[in-house]
């Protein structure tokens, strides 16, 4: 468990925020909108375009969420590296 004074803590806080953002993206109402735009609701070329757009939007949001999670992992790794470097530089008591 990193202590409050470790140099990587700031990066860890950013990673936590990014994970929170990823969760928000995955839970967004826009991700499930396409289910309401089926042929039970409306039929025709325009409705079909709408449905296709909403499916594409869902894919974009979920892919974006995955990218954000990867960014959070990278921040965690950098935080660990910073902590390790700091520990090596500290005088042995």
């Amino acid at each position: 468990m990193p202590s409050a004074s470790q140099p990587g803590n700031q990066l860890r806080e950013r990673a936590t925020a990014l994970r929170r953002l990823a969760r928000v993206l995955e839970d967004a109402d826009a991700v499930t909108l396409h289910r309401r735009a089926t042929m039970d609701t409306w039929i025709g070329p325009t409705p079909q375009h709408c449905h296709d757009d909403l499916v594409a939007a869902r894919a974009l949001l979920l892919n974006t969420s995955a990218e954000v999670r990867k960014a959070a992992i990278r921040l965690d790794q950098r935080a660990q590296q910073l902590d390790a470097a700091s520990a090596r530089a500290a005088p042995v008591s």
Binding site: R14, A30, E67, A71
Partner: peptide
Amino acid sequence: RADAGLDAIRSTDPDAASA
């Protein structure tokens, strides 16, 4: 509602800019 929900999503983190 979905539009409003998306509108509430904000972040100043540079790694979230693309998102």
